[in-house]
Amino acid sequence: MSGAKGLDLTLKIWRQKNAQSKGKLETYQLNSVSPDSSFLEMLDILNNELIEKGESPVEFDHDCREGICGACSLYINGEPHGPGKRITTCQLHMRSFNDGDTIYIEPWRARAFPIIKDLVVDRSAFDRIQHAGGYISVNTSGNTQDANAIPIEKEYADEAFDAATCIGCGACVAACKNASASLFVSAKISQYALLPQGQVEAKNRVLNMVKQAEKEGFGPCSNTGACEVECPKGISIENIARMNREFLKASIAE
């Protein structure tokens, strides 16, 4: 795998000391990066160089580095999670870039995602939307009915699963010109709407979650589909259509 020549890169990275201060793009030169390195390993290399030089390293969110925890973000060359379809930033590898490239690295930009430092943003609005209804009200008792008591058609089970794979990264918001959270919200609504267990609370769930998203300052959906294109998990905008139907149904019933 190794052996290929390293890449020499120019990095333009958003630096911002904290929420209050103004940020700006800084330029860094980084040489001989292995094309087998991941994008975040490339930032690790940069940070170790910066620390050795006595400069402050670049803060960015990450944890699993496998595309599943949803912690990593980064707006790379104008695209959430960078080039490459259906991957997160931590799954992006340097072989997607060329020797001599200039790479722009910025945080998610949205009113509801304030910057904490450098490339780290505050996505707690997403959690608060989930608090508003992202659950089925069932206590842990140890005598719930047998799991196979209600068969669920494979087709619906699979569709619910697909919606449930949202990792809560926020790329959909970053990709949207209105900074709408509709794809994220609709993923949870759809998962439950497709399952029998989710029916009882369906009405309040959709009303409350949508209301909370508005309150957090996410914009309206104007169906451009930019979110679906950038979503690393391929969450389909059909979920938004389903959410809208659920919302309408619930509003009429109000």
Binding site: I136, V138, G142, T144, K154, Q197
Partner: peptide, 25 residues
């Protein structure tokens, strides 16, 4: 002993486990 309860609990919460064509887990 408690392992079986876990699956029941998770299904009740809406965890979408894989199912076969008969709709069972």
């Amino acid at each position: 002993e408690v392992s079986a309860n876990i699956i029941d609990q998770c299904v009740a919460q809406g965890v979408p486990f894989a199912r076969d064509y008969g709709g069972l887990l």
